[in-house]
């Protein structure tokens, strides 16, 4: 091995070591207050359920895991796939996907608009995106009921402008859920987008126009690839938490159908079946992690085109 390669190799090692030190505090906090306790949940999923919540310590059982995937019909004792769990999972995924897309469609132009303002106005607008979130989610949701009610703002506007002749039912429908979810998760999309847009190199945009690209083409071929990291970050921040959301679906959507969050909540609460709740959450965690790693890997492969 030549000196040069050895020096390079040493430098690389030192760099990696430094990178571990830099990550250490975050990993430590996460280990104590997130990952470590989660191991307890993993353990719980393999125990016998306690009579009134909790588990029977030291008594191992696979009942929790069995109930995640299969159900024994309580009337004829036949065993089948846990159809209820599948349909709840499917609905949650669908709802989260739509929420993420809607948030992106509204958040992208907003973040872009903010990022092209002059600096002072820009800072102001960024703050303005977060100010509504200084009020608690529950109270915001109640205020939103006022917007979507039959005599609420939207319906009053619709009737007044003659678009409809009688109020349409929005509250307690999926529309209300989407409205509420987009509202709640908007800053989670706008802020990461803004953070990556703020430094767009507009010379590239200019070059695009010089090559006779239209506005849409510039947007699609230049701007979007440039801010891809922001899109990825924003989508993750919206998609995953909305999978587990449960206040908004309940207060605005009427809570007639369980979401994943409510299902798990039910097992830890009124259902008093902690092992099943634990097993369900581990399942969710695995699904999301795999999807996320896949997504990030793909995004970093195809994305960028800038600085690489």
């Amino acid at each position: 091995m030549s000196d040069a390669t050895r020096i390079a190799e040493n430098a690389r090692r030192a760099d990696i070591r430094n990178r571990w030190w830099l990550t250490a505090p975050a990993l430590f906090i996460l280990f104590v207050a997130a990952i470590g306790p989660l191991l307890v949940v993993l353990l719980y999923s393999f125990m016998l359920k306690g009579d009134f919540g909790d588990v029977k310590y030291g008594q191992f059982s696979l009942d929790g895991w069995f109930s995640v995937f299969f159900e024994r019909d309580i009337f004829d004792d036949t065993v089948g796939i846990a159809e209820a769990h599948v349909s709840i999972l499917w609905r949650s995924v669908k709802l989260s996907l739509i929420t993420t897309l809607l948030t992106l469609f509204i958040g992208f132009p907003t973040a872009y608009y903010i990022s092209i303002q002059e600096p002072r106005r820009r800072d102001l607008l960024v703050f303005m995106v977060t100010i509504p979130f200084w009020t608690n989610i529950l109270i915001r949701t109640f205020a939103m009921q006022e917007v979507v009610r039959n005599e609420g703002v939207i319906n009053t506007l619709l009737v007044w402008s003659g678009i409809v002749d009688r109020p349409i039912q929005i509250m307690y429908t999926d529309w209300a859920i989407f409205f509420g979810m987009v509202y709640v998760y908007l800053p989670l999309m706008v802020l990461p987008l803004y953070a990556s847009m703020e430094k767009i190199d507009f010379r590239l945009v200019e070059a695009g126009y010089d090559l006779y690209a239209g506005r849409f083409q510039v947007l699609r071929r230049v701007i979007i690839p440039l801010v891809k990291p922001g899109i990825v970050a924003g989508s993750i921040l919206v998609f995953i938490p909305s999978l587990g959301a449960y206040v908004t679906p309940r207060v605005l959507g009427g809570g007639k159908n369980l979401m994943l969050g409510n299902l798990i909540d039910l097992q830890f609460g009124q259902g008093k079946n902690w092992p099943l709740g634990s097993a369900l959450s581990i399942t969710l965690l695995v699904i999301v992690t795999v999807a996320l790693l896949f997504y990030v890997r793909n995004a970093s492969k195809s994305g960028g085109g800038h600085g690489h």
């Binding site: 309580i74 209820a84 159908n257 369980l258 039910l266 259902g271 079946n273």
Partner: peptide
């Protein structure tokens, strides 16, 4: 309670 939870999940799925 376990039976009730199953019924409840069935109703709300």
């Amino acid at each position: 309670v376990e039976l009730y939870t199953k019924i409840w999940t069935d109703v709300m799925k």
